[in-house]
Amino acid sequence: MALIAVALAVLPFALAAVGTTWVRITNLAILFILLSLGLNIVVGFAGLLDLGYIAFYAVGAYVYALLASPQFDIHWPFWAVVPLGALVACIFGVLLGAPTLKLRGDYLAIVTLGFGEIVRIFLNNLSQPVNITNGPQGISRIDPIRIGNLSLGSTDTLAGLTFSGPIKYYYLLIVVLLLVLIVNVRLQHSRIGRAWEAIREDETAARAMGIDTMRMKLLAFAMGASFGGIAGSIFSAMQGFISPESFVLVESIMVLSMVVLGGMGNIWGVAAGALLLSFVPELLRYTVGPMQQALFGRSIIEPEVIRMLLFGLALVVMMMYRPAGLFPSAVRRRELTRRTQAQ
């Protein structure tokens, strides 16, 4: 335990020695773990397929960007804006979920996908006649997170060590990640977590047990949305710039791939899936590109294409050979292999 803590504390300096880019990549990877854990509540715990999850991330990001940037010259502190981002995302989740959660699973998937697109289209176009989102140009010069006099956006030196902005965000993200992990683990092993499990297993029987299934699904939706909102707010502050392009359908599918690859319902598996799908493409970017250059003298397959192919293949191959993920939750593994003979 202490060893892991030390390793996590030292990691950013080791990465910074290789290149600050790697600290940034790690930070984004942690954000994706946060997103995957949020989506895991919806997909993994409650069994609801949400294909528009990135919309909640977008909502959180824009709430932060609008309330802490020169866009409206509002500069609220992060401790007010981040929770607000979570709250607004949560409200969006409830507004979307309330009328649609009674739909059969695959319809819910499509409706959430449509919702994701609607949010993106609005973000893209709400620059006229009143400029709210600044349209496709996005919002820039977003305030970094400031804790007292400490700005996470700038570089400080302390005790001979250089703390760059990304390194400071890294520590913040690790703290948030720990909190989110604790929340997830505790929820899973609680009355609420059991109710979700029951709904996923057999909704009719769950209702007969006195579980208000609509309410529990809505709760899962709202919680997942809130986590997305928090991740989005931090993303906004960390990047200092956001635009609708960061919140396209592919991003939703990427997060879903992480959850599926890791193992729906298994918190540690999902985290591992997110790490894997965040880092492998980056590694490929730095290896496959130059390798192709060396072998063929030019780049035949762009790294970006490889990345996307990887996501696509991850989904297809996993469903075929390991539907419960690389690190399956015990219950999910049994569920996902169960019906091959029964039906």
């Binding site: 069994g47 397929l49 699973g105 695959d106 998937a109 879903l256 599926v260 989904l315 297809v316 996993m318 469903m319 075929m320 539907p323 569920e335 996902l336 169960r338 019906r339 091959t340 003979q341 029964a342 039906q343």
Partner: peptide, 11 residues
């Protein structure tokens, strides 16, 4: 075929 509905959808 015969797998839970979400599987082919994700595929």
């Amino acid at each position: 075929r015969g797998a839970p509905r979400l599987a082919p959808l994700i595929t």
